[in-house]
Amino acid sequence: MARYGMVIDTNRCVGCDACTLACKVQNGTPPGVLLARVLEKEEGKYPNVKRTYLPVLCFHCQDPACVEVCPSKALSKRPDGIVVVDKDRCCGVKACMAACPYDALHFYENHGGYFGETLTPIEEYYYRRHRPGTVLKCDFCSERVAQGMVPACVEACPVSCRYFGDLEDPKSHVSQLVKKEARQVLPEAGTNPSVFYLFTSGGDR
């Protein structure tokens, strides 16, 4: 069985947020919910400053803390390693949000759309997928993956800093990167994430 994972090359990331936008378009997430984000860190003082970009999404951990705390088993890990949420079982406890070390779960409070209370036709179409008062999370665009495509954030990245594939397949590009140099962030959280990073030159800008 495949175990899907991602490797993100931080040395290539320019912080353009194309992945964030592609994710919003693919998943039709409401205001305030961004399943793919680009975190940033500024260090130093002018003129010796550096900025680090860290694109993040759900890390689809092998030992997901969110699945453990959920009382209603709304969160589960599929055999292919993708962690999914069942919106009909989510009761809005939010314990998963505290449990996740990567802030990958987002609570959907229905505050209308981007242009006020009245939704635009496209918002109406998209928001029907979501249930207010429950959590939303990245599912590696499982609908696309099922059709043999890569997640929208991977496809949209203009500098090709994201690699998606089967971590169990030793011939796949992601598993070779993982074997060679990619590493997990916050491994001490003990969740064994399936998203890895390349920091060959420190990820500085």
Binding site: C90, C91, T134
Partner: peptide, 13 residues
């Protein structure tokens, strides 16, 4: 948010 859902499923995990 959904008390009836919670009452239906709280013991499953």
């Amino acid at each position: 948010t959904y008390r009836s859902v919670f009452l239906r499923y709280f013991f499953v995990n």
